[in-house]
Each structure stands twice: as C-alpha cells, then as structure tokens.
Design a protein around this nucleic acid. Structure first.
Lengths: 256, 256
DNA sequence: CTGTACGCCGTACACCGTACAACGTATCGA
DNA sequence: TCGATACGTTGTACGGTGTACGGCGTACAG
C-alpha cells in the first residue's frame, strides 16, 4: 500500500511529466542522464504487454532500461505514477479518425470498438483503475475530446453527453475485464474448461442440484452449450453493445 | 503471482470447503483443531470490511483467529482460495425476497440495487475478479438462481436471460468499482478534490487548453458544476441504471 | 501401549517497493 | 581557473508479502 502517490512538496510532479514540462529537459548540473522518462515508460509498457502487469516491477523495468533499480526513481516519482504515465501514453497512441457524417450509433460503435481493441491488446489495462479518475495527461485529454466529439449532433446536453460516454466506456471496461479474467483463468491454471468440469464432476454433481437451482442449472447449461464454453466473449460483446446502444437510443431519440 | 490456485492432487479442495464436504468435519487423528475454516473466512471478511482488501494478509488473518500464520494453511489451501470463500459467503448472506408480481423493470431494479448495496458495503469486492469466473459455491449459486428468477415472465429464452443478467450485473460492478476508486482517491490522498485542483492549477491552466480540447474543457466543467464534484456516484447510478434497463426493454418488449 | 497421521508453528526464501547514504560528475559563481 | 554545489547512479537494507519445509507434540487406530 503505497500511500500519498502525489506528494505535497511540489504539487504533482506527475503532471509535469505527463505534459513534458520544459524544466525537465533543461540542462541540469550533475552527470549526464543515461536514459529518459520516456524510455522508462516504454520499458514498462513492453513488459506489461509481454508478461502482464505483475511483471512490471521496478527492478524489471530498471533492467530493461539498463540502469539500477533505484535509478528508476530519478525518472519517475514512484510506481503508481509510472502506471499513470503508461496509461496516458497508451491513450495518446489511439487512432482518432475524424468523425464523418455517419449516424451516432455508428460513431458510438466505433468508440466502443476502439476501446475494446485497446483493452484487448493491453489487457492489463483492465487491472488498473483507469476509468473514474484517469491521469489528466495529453493522451487522456485527446481521447476524451475525440470521443465527446462523437456525440456531436445527438442533441444531448453537456452533462448528459458526459454521462453517456462514461456509461458506454463503463460497459467496454467491464466486458474486457471479464474477458481478461476468463482468459487468465484458463491460461494460468493450465487446465482447460472441459478438464476442470471433468475433474470436479463428482463434487459438482451433488452441488449443482437441479432441484435446488432449477433455473441456474438449466440456463447455465444452455449458455454453455450455445457458446461452446461457459462464457463467450464475442457473444457477450455483441449482446452488451447492442443493449448499451439501445439504452442510449431511448435518450438520444428523445433529445432529437 | 501465485500460480495454480487449485492443485492437481485432489481436484479442488476449494469446492469441498465451499460445499461443506462432510469429510472435513469428520473426526481426524491429530490434536484438536483450534479453529474452523469458517472462523478464518470470517476473520478475513472483517479485516477486509474494516481496513480494505490490502489488509487481508495471511499473517493478519492468523492473528485475528488466534493461530500462527502457517496454521491458516491447514484451514484454507491458500490466499486465492480464501478470497473465493469470502466472496461466496457474502453472496450467501444476501437477501433473497420472493419476487412478487411486480413489473420486470421493478424486479431488475431490485436486483441492481441489492448488488449495489453489497458492493458498497464491501467495496473491496470490486477489486477481486468476481464476475466472469465466480467461485461455484452455494452462495453464488443461490444468488444466481434468485436473480434468474427475476426474469420469469419476460419471455426471454435461456441464453438471452443469462446474457441479460450478466449485462445488468456488469453495469453494477463497473459503477461500483468507479465509485470505490473515486472514494479511495480522495480518501488516501488526504487531499480534497478542490485542494487538488487548486494545488495543480498552474500546470493545469496550460494543460487544459480550451482551444485544444474545446468539448473536454467545457463538458468537464459543466459536469463538475452540475454535481458539485468531478464525479457524482449517485448521478452516474441513476443515469446508468435507467440506460441499462432501457436497453433491456428493447429486447424484452420485442420478446413479449 | 505404540505407531502414525495430523495440527501447529518457527524459520527461511524469494520477491516486492523504496529509504538512505556514499560516491562520482558536471555545471555554476567567484 | 577553481572550489562549491547540485545532481545522477548505485549497493545495501528495511519492512512487507505469500508460502515451502521440517520439527514437535497430540490424539486416535490397532
């Protein structure tokens, strides 16, 4: 539990890092720096993508950059701040194609799918708290601006637009987190879905009593059969996105 | 990273614990047990509720139970399994009032609010992966069954019902996670929302450029002003739940 | 009564984030 | 030109985590 991520001395060195404060690149006194904050963030990102968030340790990042563990702290205030920088950098790299004159539903679908692609490529993102209080960096800002623009012409007010976007992104985040968890469960248990059910069949036979849980047993089986697995990411995505957009449609159509 | 949570020797001792396998209470050979698995789970739960998930360490749980750290492992296979037991126990304690003949919308609202209450009282639940691959214990099963019953009479098929429930719970989980994150951000930074903005005003003034991010700056300010904070949990809840139910209405009305 | 299976626990290991102090280096003020 | 000084780098160390291992004593089975 690392408390007080942003100290009190000088308020939020993280913000300075995020926005590339010029005082950071100004000539300093001591010996030449052997790396840059960017390299540290890049190393951490590649580690997270290749081996998961748990592999992002200060020591591992340091080794990848080619400095000692403690030197990392001269580039980045601490680990929580490093995570913030990673998140913002990823958001900065997202594509932001101009919104053509398509329907709002098409545009919001694009928003959702872009976010799904991000959270699929970098699944560890679902493990860091990035939704409610994201780092206010250039990447997050640019993404926010771009996604808000997708609501142009919907007739929604400012407050409603913000709430609608949060709602949409909440669905994407929630879905991708589930997908990530499911993938990890089968991955690092080295046990397939079917194997698990087979191995635990004796215990489960008594537990999953159709008399006690009629709907649960029947529906659980039906869902598993329909998707070929206990949980299908694609099916859940199709369903959830359609529902989410339908829900917003009720609001947007009323506004128009 | 604790791998292989459920070993290969005897498949899933966790399931036996979840379902109170009688072989567990049968008289054993050695000395009297000085505690029970239930007491361990209870201690862990109280710890999590009082001081957060990070305070749930094996050593802390052991101390609360009154045994040594390593003795905990004679009651519970390991920490991931302990978390599973905690989750199931909480779900078992949820109220399951019979569904009267109210509208489906009213029933689903009850489902959502019951889950919100759970995730608010035990906010740490949003930090454990409990949605996609929950522990198949009696609590989770009973909750699943009860919530599925809320869909009786909607005309939805089995697969659709399961997807709809997952969708609804996904919203609740996502919302409560954001609320939890937001609360933590202001809590353990010992810095109020306003203080933070004031302290970082100089940097933010240049960063939040209305020319670069016209919508973001305007809408961010509007949302903050409307709710008296950067993010209002209650407002987001009202909005999101209405949207979620509207989205399901499009499906359910079509089925009827 | 004895063998043995089992509960309990102290110690130890590998790993984490990071505080601290020593040391070398490059710039600035004189 | 020459300290003084500020800064980068690093090794060591501390307190924390989950848990493997082995010694010890207990209580039941024969």
């Amino acid at each position: 539990m690392t408390d007080s991520s942003t100290g009190a001395g000088e308020p939020s060195r993280t913000l300075a890092l995020l926005w590339g404060d010029p005082t950071l690149t100004a000539p300093r006194k001591g010996p030449r720096r052997s790396a840059t904050p960017d390299q540290v963030v890049e190393a951490a990102l590649s580690l997270a993508d290749e081996r998961g968030l748990a592999a992002v340790t200060v020591r591992a990042v340091a080794e990848r950059v080619g400095v000692s563990a403690m030197s990392v702290y001269t580039y980045v205030p601490g680990k929580p701040e490093l995570l913030d920088l990673m998140v913002d950098r990823l958001h900065l790299a997202m594509p932001r194609p101009p919104w053509r004159s398509r329907s709002w539903r098409r545009r919001l679908t694009d928003v959702a799918e872009a976010n799904r692609a991000l959270l699929t490529t970098h699944a560890w993102l679902t493990e860091v708290a990035a939704l409610s209080r994201p780092p206010l960096g250039p990447g997050v800002m640019a993404k926010y601006e771009h996604e808000l623009a997708a609501f142009d012409g919907t007739g929604l007010g400012d407050v409603e637009t913000d709430a609608a976007l949060t709602f949409l992104l909440g669905f994407v985040q929630s879905h991708c987190r589930s997908a990530h968890d499911a993938a990890r469960a089968t991955t690092d248990s080295a046990m397939s879905d079917a194997d698990w059910w087979a191995a635990n069949q004796p215990v489960l036979a008594r537990a999953l009593d159709p008399a006690a849980y009629p709907r649960a047993v029947r529906i659980g089986a039906a869902a598993g059969e329909a998707h070929g697995a206990a949980w299908s990411a694609d099916a859940a995505w199709e369903f959830g996105l359609a529902r989410t957009l339908d829900g917003l449609a009720a609001l947007i159509d009323a506004a128009a």
